[in-house]
């Protein structure tokens, strides 16, 4: 029974929480170069950890206590959210700005698609913010050779 319970949790999957497509501009003098910026942080599902812990521990009372502790901690994680809470820092998504600037220093960006997704593993998860888009770069005209 315990093995079956663990097997159910030992699967990894990708979840999409939110997708947004921004305005797309095109210009005959510019070429669009695709880019991708990805930032992520590790999330932690305390309730899942509690359930797995309770299944692994042979002592029933200790397992129940572990589940109770997990339930109490999860009560402090309130409000609307996507994915699992991250413990280290909630500002990891701010790095997107830096990433965008590095990928397209000219700032002429178009077709931005922002995706909030999660890679789910047992207990932990990868909380990902992905931005794809196009950097507009002026087309270079071939230089004529002087005869």
């Amino acid at each position: 029974m315990k093995n079956l319970f663990l097997l159910l949790f030992v699967s990894s999957c990708a979840y999409v929480h939110h997708t947004q497509v921004g305005e797309i501009k095109s210009h005959p003098d510019y070429e669009s170069i695709p880019f991708e910026v990805l930032v992520s942080e590790t999330g932690f599902n305390i309730q899942e950890a509690g359930k797995i812990g309770a299944a692994v521990i042979s002592d029933k009372n200790a397992g129940d206590n572990l589940k109770a502790v997990a339930a109490i901690i999860s009560l402090f994680q309130m409000g609307p959210r996507t994915g699992e809470p991250v413990w280290s820092s909630d500002t990891y998504a701010d790095k997107v700005f830096v990433g965008l600037y590095e990928k397209c220093p000219s700032g002429q960006i178009t077709g931005l698609t922002s995706i909030r997704e999660m890679n789910k593993y047992p207990v932990v998860s990868g909380e990902i913010v992905k931005i794809t888009g196009f950097c507009l770069k002026k087309k270079t005209t071939p230089v004529r050779k002087q005869l």
Partner: peptide, 28 residues
């Protein structure tokens, strides 16, 4: 519930821009 990638989302903006090659797509 088994899904391993989200790369299919990248086609969205490419599809839109291909349908409006000489202009810009706004109010999306």
């Amino acid at each position: 519930f088994f899904n391993f990638n989200t790369t299919y989302l990248n086609e969205l903006s490419a599809q839109l821009s291909s349908k409006c090659e000489k202009g810009s797509v706004e109010g999306i």
